[in-house]
């Protein structure tokens, strides 16, 4: 078997494993949610049973009562689906690692000089980041998002972006290719996991909203926007699996830590890119489309970091900014490579 075949098979194998992991982790999430809902219902039942008790103490009874029930629901956390999800994700990551390395061997250089290579390496880093976070804490609620993203990105990469490996063009023959691009990929992987946590945060948050009255709203526009909002809230309320996801504040904290690491790495990426451009093109910054977008991404995430500490922006609005940053990140890698002309265009398909 050649390195090329090995890489190809390993990557398809990883894609399949991630798909399984996505389904299994979604099933797991749904079960945890059911258990939590049931526990809540039982706790409420007990409170109403204790009916006569003074109102003030009702709440504390509820919290105390729920403690043992959640404890008894814990075994469900280690159900079969979770085991499958964890095993397939890990195996998928190992297999993908083989695929990425084999591609590097086949190409004779680091596997991140074309869009195809960037995709396979980037998704791999995202999964590895997730696995690292998972070692420390239970973040199984992120699993469907991360494995789902990996399945789609890898599948698209293999079918749409695949390109034969070639030698490196003179402009890419640099030690900075290794530094600049590898850090960019790691930052992207971390931002990806951060974006998944942020999406969950927003869903969890909006889910607790109540619907707004439509009839008494002033004009048609407000009514339409409220209807749209209410519809969203209803959809989110129907997603019981969101019960298995931690509270918005906790997700925010996790997302912030990821974004903070990602932002430092992205800052480094942009600076290293400038140093490299200075070596290769004789100017450190030339507002080439790729440079424009790297800058835009950086500024959006900086805005996110400021929004977190600004009254009226902390929470939902800052989360939206982080997601806009992520969209820009994906744009930078897709639209900017494929549509815009620039010095970076050799990174194209």
């Amino acid at each position: 078997m050649t390195a090329q075949e090995l890489s190809w098979l390993a990557l398809w194998g990883a894609t399949a494993l991630y798909a399984i992991a996505m389904v299994a982790s979604a099933v797991h999430l749904a079960r945890v949610a059911d258990a939590k809902v049931a526990a809540k219902a039982r706790a409420e039942h007990k409170v109403t049973a204790a009916g006569g008790a003074a109102n003030g103490s009702a709440e504390s009874t509820a919290t105390r009562a729920s403690a043992p029930t959640t404890a008894s629901a814990t075994p469900a956390l280690h159900d079969k689906a979770n085991g499958i999800a964890k095993a397939t994700t890990l195996m998928g990551a190992l297999l993908q690692g083989v695929g990425v390395v084999a591609r590097g061997v086949e190409a004779g250089h680091v596997p991140w000089s074309t869009m195809y290579e960037y995709t396979i390496t980037g998704t791999w880093v995202a999964v590895v980041v997730f696995l690292i976070v998972q070692r420390k804490r239970d973040v199984s609620y992120l699993a469907p998002g991360v494995t789902g993203f990996a399945t789609i990105a890898l599948g698209l990469g293999m079918t749409v972006l695949y390109a034969q490996s070639t030698g490196l063009q003179p402009a890419l023959q640099s030690f900075w290719l290794i530094i600049h691009v590898s850090i960019a990929i790691i930052a992207t992987g971390i931002f990806t996991v951060g974006a998944v946590a942020t999406v969950l945060q927003l869903w969890r948050d909006y889910r607790d909203d109540s619907e707004l009255p439509v009839a008494d709203a002033g004009n048609a526009l407000t009514r339409a926007s409220r209807r749209w909002r209410n519809w969203n809230v209803r959809v989110l309320k129907s997603w019981t699996w969101l019960e298995a996801v931690p509270a918005p504040a906790k997700l925010e904290a996790l997302a912030f830590r990821l974004h903070a690491v990602g932002f430092v790495l992205w800052t480094f990426t942009v600076m290293a890119g400038a140093v490299w451009a200075e070596h290769a093109w004789g100017r450190y910054w030339g507002w080439d489309p790729k440079e424009v977008w790297s800058f835009v991404i950086w500024v959006i995430y900086a805005a996110y970091l400021h929004a977190r500490t600004t009254q009226g922006w902390a929470g939902r609005r800052s989360a939206v900014l982080a997601l806009i940053g992520f969209v820009a990140l994906i744009m930078n890698f897709t639209v900017v490579n494929l549509v815009f002309q620039g010095l970076h265009s050799y990174a194209g398909v």
């Binding site: 424009v292 500024v299 959006i300 805005a303």
Partner: peptide
Amino acid sequence: SMRVALILLIALALAAIPGSV
């Protein structure tokens, strides 16, 4: 103020985009 800094940052990001299009 922090809020103005924030809005200026967002404006900066938006303003840069036509430069790539």
